[in-house]
Amino acid sequence: MRSLPPYRISGFDEQKTLTETGDTLKRWRQNTIGRRIGWLGLGLLLIGGLFTLVIWSGPNRAAPSEKNSSRAGHGPSEPIQTSDRLPKGVNIRQPDGPPRVATGKTNSLGEPVTVQCATCHATTESNHDLQGVKELDEFHQGLEYQHGALHCLSCHNPEDYNTLRLANGRSLPFSKVKTLCAQCHGTQARDYRNGSHGGMVGAWDLSQGGRYRNNCIDCHDPHHPEYPKLMPVFEPKPPRTAPSQPANKEKH
């Protein structure tokens, strides 16, 4: 599966370990301080507390709406860290340029050797009758291909393999691959343009921040575009339940 782009998903790293909850419960049980303070102390505390509450709550109960507006200035002291913010406007991820194809060989450092399309195709004659990858004797072996009844040259440009080709014959740089997809997938392209297809991060309010959006091929491999099946993450656990009542609880 194509790895998803390294977007910031949230402000902190993956969780490491989980801690147990048992000790909180023990603290809840053991730390009752009612025992330590005498009844008199509690009584005074209650009376004092009630008195304070009455004094404090009196004048403030009026005009909550006015309170709201007066508090508008209290709001967030500062916007969240600018490092969290993306550049202004909507930025759509784009391929840098023509893809590089793995040769299946590695260099002396063990890194895979990749070549540009034109490295071979500049001198190789195009085979317009080719029906699919399976007919090839060499190179592009093992390329998984399942994309309707399209052929290689439905999208690749036999005049210049470093570009794509639209249905009307015009060449198109790889960076504008969305235009190519949109020729057939009009409804998806429309939904994408209107923000209801394709992952994104950033701001809903573009006056307050930028937005990054995925490109078609970030999620859909052009050669087998069906979104891959994957194992769901974050398996639900049974919800927290009531802790058993403290044994020393007073009987009423």
């Binding site: 923000g195 950033g202 809903w204 999620c219």
Partner: peptide, 19 residues
């Protein structure tokens, strides 16, 4: 969201199902 940002669940959605 009151700072103009998307909710966390939307940003995490890999398919863009959330608007």
């Amino acid at each position: 969201t009151r700072q103009g940002q998307m909710p966390a669940c939307l940003e995490a959605c890999p398919t863009g199902a959330r608007v």
